[in-house]
Amino acid sequence: MFSWFANPSRFMNLSNWLAPACYAAGTLLIAWGLWQGLWIVPKDDYQGGDIMRVMFVHVPSAWLAMASYSAMAAMSFVWFIWRHEVADVAAKAIAPLGALWTALALATGAIWGKPTWGTWWQWDDARLMSVLFMFFLFLGYIALRAAMDTRQQAARAGAILAMVGAINVPLIHYSVDLFTSLHQDASVVTADGPKMAAVYLWPLLSSALGHSFLFAALVQTQMRTEIRERRTARIRADLMAGG
């Protein structure tokens, strides 16, 4: 199955129509989710009134922060084992976009935290800390790739780091969880309450799905750019060699 996607030309043909479709689906779903979230759904007094509307931006970005890191690690793994070039192109394309959505999750989380917890930041919340260190892992990945001389070196070093990071993210989460359980006095209002009413669920799902589609679309465009840049570089190299 991986091998089918491993052909860059096949990927270019596929993404030629899939990327625009993802842009359209993503935009529509996000727009519907935001419209519902901001205008239609009633405010939830249990969650502190209107502020829970932040959820329709924050939860999708937090979900994408985790999903994008997992995707990058999975693509790195595929490249490392099978050396499918498209997997490396994908991992490289995911990194900056994943970093953006992770930063978005942190920023919107801080904005939500201020009126609900009274602070912008909670050191003893495992989710916050895991996402923060995932952001650092993204930055390290981008910096490491940029520091390498050749594409092959960048791919290999990046793959190793992404996989080492992937086995560490659960550890980080667990360690901060333990840290939190020892600081009982800091009572954190959990972002997602005990049960979520269906009226919030559909707009939230729509937003999350929309962000995922948009993310997928952006990754595909970035991959197309990368593949074209590689082709251009190859043609130029041939011309130099021939002329």
């Binding site: 205008w39 009126p115 948009l214 952006l218």
Partner: peptide, 24 residues
């Protein structure tokens, strides 16, 4: 829409999200 006292936080979130994603 008319939000309660936290309107600034909500609009800031929506604004940051929209602008950063559109710019990207």
């Amino acid at each position: 829409p008319d939000f309660d006292k936290n309107a600034a936080y909500i609009w800031a979130t929506v604004g940051i999200g929209t602008v950063s994603i559109l710019m990207t």
